[in-house]
């Protein structure tokens, strides 16, 4: 089971490091990562394995969003199936 972590907002130093650290803390394995920076606008997408996570998914989501608020970013973790159903036939 995988989740997609999206990080959207203004670029700054250390975003990837902090989000990765949060994933590691919860034992969520990052399997893929893509990012693009358009002017100052930063968008990063991580695919993380959540099966072996040691905390509840909702806790992981909440902590990511708290991290986002601190950094002025929109950070969300959503089950990959919502994207699969929407964009794949």
């Amino acid at each position: 089971m995988k989740a997609v972590v999206t990080v959207i907002g203004k670029d700054s130093v250390g975003i990837i490091a902090e989000v990765s650290a949060e994933c590691a803390k919860h034992n969520a394995n990052i399997v893929d990562i893509t990012q693009s920076v358009l002017k100052d606008y930063f968008a990063m997408i991580m695919l993380v394995e959540i099966e072996k996570m040691e905390t509840e998914f909702s806790v992981f989501q909440k902590e990511l969003s708290i991290l986002g608020e601190r950094k002025g970013l929109d950070i969300r973790a959503m089950h990959e199936d919502i994207f699969n159903s929407m964009h794949r036939i």
Binding site: A43, I45, L47, D74, R76, F83, H87
Partner: peptide
């Protein structure tokens, strides 16, 4: 992996 634009489109639909 899923296309980055598709993912951003979904997030944008929910957020905006």
């Amino acid at each position: 992996m899923l296309n980055i634009n598709d993912i951003l489109e979904t997030v944008n639909m929910i957020k905006q």
